[in-house]
């Protein structure tokens, strides 16, 4: 194989490798232009975050508009502080938007679902979402169920 063909083949090989990496990063992974830096951050306090983890999706009407960027504990109020990173194009979330921790499907991972409010002012970087709903904890649910049954009927 002469030198020109050799170098061409090697060049193609290297390009294919870099291309594969790019495809992998963008199509298979979740790298996108809006993923880093540009997004704005709001925080929300929850009594119980359940199984929510960092990087969990933040959705509006079921559509993903951001990710959970940080989870920390508020030691004075004994609750969880969750920081949400929202993509910059979704800048018209009303200031009284509520955040709930929901589960995707039966076995799915947990995510934060946003429900828009009605105010005229919008959430900006550093704002706090006041209205929140904590995650459903299975044991509490079962306890509730048993309690209700005990109240409702004695047997059967």
């Amino acid at each position: 194989m002469n030198r020109g063909t050799l170098e061409l083949t090697v060049g193609l090989f290297v390009l294919a490798g870099i291309g594969a990496l790019a495809v992998l990063a963008f199509k298979v992974g979740n790298l996108s232009a809006a993923n880093s830096g540009d997004s704005y951050k709001v925080s929300a306090r929850f009594d119980n975050i359940g199984g929510l983890t960092v990087k969990a999706p933040v959705t509006l009407a079921g559509v993903r508009i951001g990710r959970v960027s940080k989870i920390s504990v508020d030691r004075e109020k004994y609750s969880a502080l969750v920081e949400l990173s929202i993509a910059p194009e979704y800048d018209n979330l009303p200031a009284d938007t509520s955040a709930s921790i929901l589960t995707a499907g039966l076995l799915g991972a947990q995510y934060v679902g946003l429900e828009p409010g009605g105010e005229d002012t919008f959430l900006t970087n550093g704002d706090r979402i006041e209205i929140t709903q904590s995650a459903v904890v299975l044991e509490h649910l079962i306890g509730q169920l048993l309690f209700n049954r005990a109240e409702g009927g004695g047997g059967s």
Partner: peptide
């Protein structure tokens, strides 16, 4: 198939570490 992948595979954590 593709969306479950995109939701869960992180470019930094998974792909970069693999590289």
């Amino acid at each position: 198939y593709w969306s479950s992948m995109q939701e869960g595979v992180d470019a930094r954590e998974d792909i970069l570490n693999g590289v």
